[in-house]
Design a protein around this nucleic acid. Structure first.
Length: 288
DNA sequence: CACCATGTTCCTTG
DNA sequence: CCAAGGAACATGGT
């Protein structure tokens, strides 16, 4: 479930649940996820550590820990990859098939489940330095954004996925933001006008903040056996009321009518990923 | 069986 | 060294 809004909502969910808890034991079931840290090192640092806080940077979860051996808090970085989930379960509960890591506390346990194992859990924090500005933060200015976009001739949709340009936008919200900005995903990143850059910046912020608001209000069931929508997690999806009436404006809506003009939404492939847009509302202009 | 999937990283080519 | 494109990673859903 991993773009910025989902990770943000998850961080808010986990924060009060993890704060103050002490790790009694770490069970590493799939070593791939904790690379490049070694299993021994990983367990050694975690044993006896206490969770102080849970925050987010881009699509990363940041767990702040106080370890018995060190004075300074140490950071554990989690990434959900494509299919990662994190939640707490009562002790004794049977663990799901693709459980990758379990941290046992006195009264319950933290589970990191990840079928595709594209996720990560590591003490390596250097990667965070390469991330671009937080889209909802102060550093994400139109000037800064425009400067980044001007450095590339790639399609603007592809640049939105570049985590060094802005941190946290993924494949779904990239299409959503471009539709909201009325900019074609195929436009060359370095050919956007200053006005379009401003519009796109505003659209990115609006798209992400609305998704966070949506996820905050939804009834989520992180530990549920159902996949929900595989993005946020819904306790139940009552047939009567669709899970998310206007969840996405264009994403995964190929062939369906544009919410604005009624013409069919199109799907194209850019950098081997699907992009959805309305050809009428997002005219191509000078494109890649 | 075929194709698709929310993400990143590594390899190749220019 | 950089930019860009593509495959790879491992598994499940439709």
């Amino acid at each position: 479930m991993p773009e910025l809004p989902e990770v943000e909502v998850l961080a808010r969910h986990l924060r009060p649940l993890l704060r103050g808890k002490v790790v009694l034991a770490a069970d590493i079931r799939r070593e791939r996820l904790i690379r490049p840290t070694s299993v021994a090192e990983f367990k050694r640092v975690l044993a006896g550590s206490r969770f102080i806080d849970v925050t987010r940077r881009g699509k990363n979860l940041i767990f702040k820990l106080r370890t018995p051996t060190r004075r300074e808090p140490c950071l554990l970085v989690g990434h959900l990859g494509m299919t990662g989930r994190m939640y707490l379960l009562p002790l004794q509960t049977p663990l799901p098939k693709h459980t990758s890591v379990v941290l046992r506390f006195q009264r319950d346990q933290f589970v990191f489940e990840d079928p595709r194992t594209f996720g990560r859990l590591t003490f390596e924090t250097n990667g965070l330095n390469d991330l671009g500005p937080e889209p909802l933060g102060q550093e994400f200015t139109a000037v800064n954004f425009g400067r980044q976009l001007a450095r590339s001739s790639q399609a603007v949709k592809v640049k939105l996925l570049d985590q060094t340009v802005v941190a946290g936008v993924g494949n779904i919200y990239a299409s959503e933001a471009l539709f909201r900005a009325r900019i074609s995903p195929s436009r060359r990143s370095d050919q956007l006008s200053a006005q379009e850059v401003k519009r796109l910046r505003a659209a990115v912020r609006k798209t992400l903040s609305r998704a966070i608001k949506f996820g905050s209000k939804a009834q989520l069931d992180y530990a549920g056996s159902k996949n929900g929508d595989r993005l946020f997690y819904f306790g139940q999806a009552p047939e009567a009321s669709p899970v998310a009436p206007e969840r996405f404006l264009v994403y995964d809506r190929a062939g369906k009518p544009c919410v604005d003009c009624g013409r069919p939404i199109r799907r194209i492939v850019q950098a081997a990923r699907s992009t959805f847009f309305c050809p009428a509302c997002q005219p191509s202009g000078k494109s890649v």
